[in-house]
Simulated scan of single mutants.
Amino acid sequence: MKDINTLLNKISNSKDLDFGTIFSNSFELFKKTWLQGFLFVLISILVMLPLILALYLPFIGMMIAQSEDGYLGSSAISQFFTGMSILYIIFVIIAIFALSAISFALEAGFFRVIKKLDYNEPTKTSDIFYFFKAKYFSKTFIIMLASFGISILALMLCYFPIFYVMVPLSFLNVIFAFNPELTTGEIVKASFKLGNKKWLLTFGLLFVSGLLAEIVGLLMCGIGILFTVAFVYHPTYLIYKDVIGFDEEHVIDEIGNTVE
């Protein structure tokens, strides 16, 4: 972990990065991580599925019950929203934040798995749940609140701001993953600093890698997307690695593993 001033200085003094190099390195790293990426996607689905069902089943059931002759019309939807209780609305809000926090924690854990595989360190499936520890998981809720607040503010300022802040917000996960002791404000500050510094590069990499992961996944009979979707995390990780890097002991570990 680095202090916030060290992070900001490294970002300010960072060298220019090459799109092609990072994209190529993402492919090479993905060769090491594709299996863990697949497990990460499956675990994410299995962990969040019960909460998703609890959120949507009452919604679907109540609308069908209010529909006439088994058909769901606009009047049934209108009646459902009119009859929604305050408790259910509160539950929906809490569920959305809970799903976001769970997803955020799993993604942060996956970034740590990517780092270990990148440095040829041993990994285990439980590493994905690293941030489910009490001292970290509570912070994921706070970070999600901050992220939602920033997104809502950007939406209130029309569409271009949300289009812009999506890049800095994409770094929240990776900065939290490797600097979990920073405060929420410091994580947001570092994310925006890095996102602003490398905005165009990051946007291009996220767009191309996301599009490629989806196309290749669909070509593999649709089910292939479970294997390819994790690819989109690799460019973000490599940008963090090249700009901020890791503690010196990781470099020593890498040299030791290479010698072995």
Rank of each mutant, 00 (worst) to 15 (best):
M1D: 11
K2E: 10
D3I: 10
T6Y: 12
L7F: 06
K10I: 06
S12P: 00
D16I: 13
D16H: 13
D16F: 10
L17F: 10
I22Q: 07
F23W: 12
N25E: 15
F27C: 08
E28A: 15
L29F: 07
F30N: 03
K31A: 13
K32D: 13
K32C: 06
W34K: 11
L35W: 12
G37H: 05
G37A: 09
V41F: 12
P50H: 07
L51K: 05
L53A: 10
L57I: 13
L57N: 07
I60M: 12
G61D: 04
M63K: 12
I64W: 09
Q66G: 14
S67Q: 08
D69A: 12
L72E: 00
G73H: 11
S78E: 15
F80Q: 00
F80A: 00
G83T: 02
I86D: 09
L87N: 09
I89H: 02
I90S: 09
V92P: 01
I94H: 07
F97N: 06
A98N: 05
A101W: 04
I102L: 15
I102M: 13
F104I: 04
F104N: 03
F104M: 07
A105T: 01
A105E: 06
E107T: 14
G109F: 09
G109C: 09
F110Y: 15
V113Y: 07
Y119G: 01
T123N: 04
T123D: 09
K124Y: 08
I128H: 06
I128R: 05
Y130H: 11
F131Y: 12
F131N: 02
F131E: 02
K133F: 00
K133I: 02
K133M: 04
F137D: 04
F137W: 04
F141S: 03
I142P: 00
I143S: 02
M144P: 00
L145C: 12
A146D: 03
A146C: 10
L153Y: 04
L153Q: 05
L155Q: 11
Y159E: 04
P161S: 06
I162G: 00
Y164S: 02
Y164G: 02
L169R: 09
S170E: 03
L172R: 03
L172K: 05
N173C: 08
N179A: 08
N179S: 09
P180K: 03
P180S: 10
T184V: 15
T184H: 01
T184F: 02
T184W: 05
G185M: 12
I187W: 01
V188F: 06
K189D: 03
K189A: 10
A190H: 05
K193I: 00
L194T: 02
N196Y: 12
K197T: 08
W199I: 07
L201E: 10
S209D: 04
S209G: 05
G210M: 07
L211Q: 01
L211G: 09
L211N: 02
L212W: 05
A213E: 08
A213T: 07
I215V: 15
L218M: 14
L218V: 13
L219F: 14
I225Y: 15
I225A: 10
T228F: 11
T228R: 01
V229H: 09
V229S: 14
T236D: 01
L238D: 07
L238G: 06
I239T: 09
K241V: 06
I244Q: 03
G245E: 06
D247C: 03
E248L: 10
E249V: 13
V251N: 11
V251P: 00
I252D: 12
D253H: 15
N257V: 11
V259H: 11
E260V: 14
